[in-house]
Write a protein that binds this DNA or RNA. Structure first.
Lengths: 226, 226
DNA sequence: GTCTATAACACGATAGAC
DNA sequence: GTCTATCGTGTTATAGAC
């Protein structure tokens, strides 16, 4: 696509391939996207993929590792701030904690111009056989355990199992809402006026309103009041 | 896999292919699953796919149409009962309405032995280029509009936009929770003791508890109390 | 309806010149 | 580091016998 006359574009073939791969993988799926498409979009030769990455699978792995890494780093920073506030004796409450969970993902999903592609890749990662199981580092798991622990501190009347149910509810709401905002993704149902564009703050706010109340519900056995 | 000696198995090659396709597509993705794998698992010949369906794409389309059809029919039945109760002057409230939305999907996702595969397919359908955009009939859209309308009746203080935000939150919670129960699907994060098996009623109950409270939250501008 | 055989094609990967 | 040319493999789809 882009000519190589521009020295800036020429600068780093590896980075250009990585960047193009996000878009192509997102719109055509890991398996049906070809290295030819990706390298053409990157203004590179198909052999460059095997030079910089070892194989198509390694390219996929690198793309996803970058994505997970970005979310995890941002969540870690936000969570550290939250945990520090707790250690300092402040009572930060549920919303800032959920903000630490939600905002990094929403940021990834609403940034221009690749937000929609990012979400498509995250959804694919859950079902594609091209994405290895061991991609998520143990570091990821630690962060989620820290979220669970922080939630358990605020919601002592809920069991760990109940917290995990709701944690998954919250994560699902997050990814699904972002998916609906992404034109990349098949909107199975087209409502008359679903918004397909929204800024980070709006999305975060709507998600926090919904999930905060969800977490505050009583135990599943109990009825609503509590 | 299964020998053809059994006349029951021999009965309907088309149905056997359709059944095997669900499993294979779910575990290996639409694109990387091959017709050879599917027909072997179905105890059929590869040419049978092109005889009963026109092509691989048409097979995919048929698999997904069956899935969507099942959910929509079940939701329609439940929604009709709800709408009748409303027409009769009863005030059914939020939980039975959300039950009509959630239970059909949870039923699909927890049935044995293909529940996990069903969810994997539904997730793939949102990102795979093999699934045509026009698969969802206008009938689907009508059902969702009926849910939105029923929700708006119960929650008159929320705008249509706010209802849609939360409707998507609820649907996301639903699909994500079901995905976490499915061993088919890459669990990006492995929590120590996430339950990977749960009966329909338990899953429905946890989802309804969370989403009911989510819908009952005040407008996003407002703070929590209301 | 079911099978074998094969056509027609596209892919990922690599060797080797530059 | 980048490119061309090519190898080997696996795919869908189909023609035609049974």
């Amino acid at each position: 696509m882009s000519r190589l006359s521009n020295p800036v574009e020429q600068a780093d073939t590896r980075a250009r391939i990585l960047h193009a791969a996000v878009d192509i993988f997102a719109s055509r799926s890991f398996e049906s996207a070809t290295l030819k498409e990706i390298t053409e979009a990157a203004g590179a030769n198909i052999a460059a993929v095997n030079y910089y990455f070892r194989s198509k699978d390694e390219l996929i792995r690198q793309v996803m590792a970058d994505l997970f890494g970005r979310v995890n780093r941002a969540r870690n920073v936000a969570l550290l701030a939250y945990e520090k506030a707790v250690a300092d004796g402040k009572k930060p409450g549920l919303e800032p904690l959920l903000d630490a969970l939600i905002r990094p993902m929403v940021h990834l999903g609403t940034e221009m111009p690749q937000g929609a592609a990012n979400i498509s890749l995250l959804m694919q990662a859950r079902v594609s056989p091209s994405v290895p199981d061991d991609l998520s580092s143990s570091e990821d798991d630690v962060i989620h355990e820290r979220f669970i622990a922080a939630l358990a501190r605020i919601l002592p009347h809920l069991t760990r199992k109940e917290i995990i149910w709701r944690y998954n509810c919250a994560r699902g709401a997050m990814i699904f809402v972002l998916a609906e905002l992404s034109p990349n993704i098949h909107q199975i149902v087209r409502l008359a006026d679903t918004q397909r564009k929204a800024d980070e703050d709006t999305v975060v706010r709507e998600l926090i309103v919904f999930t905060t109340q969800g977490f505050l519900a009583g135990s599943a056995g109990t009825t609503l009041a509590q």
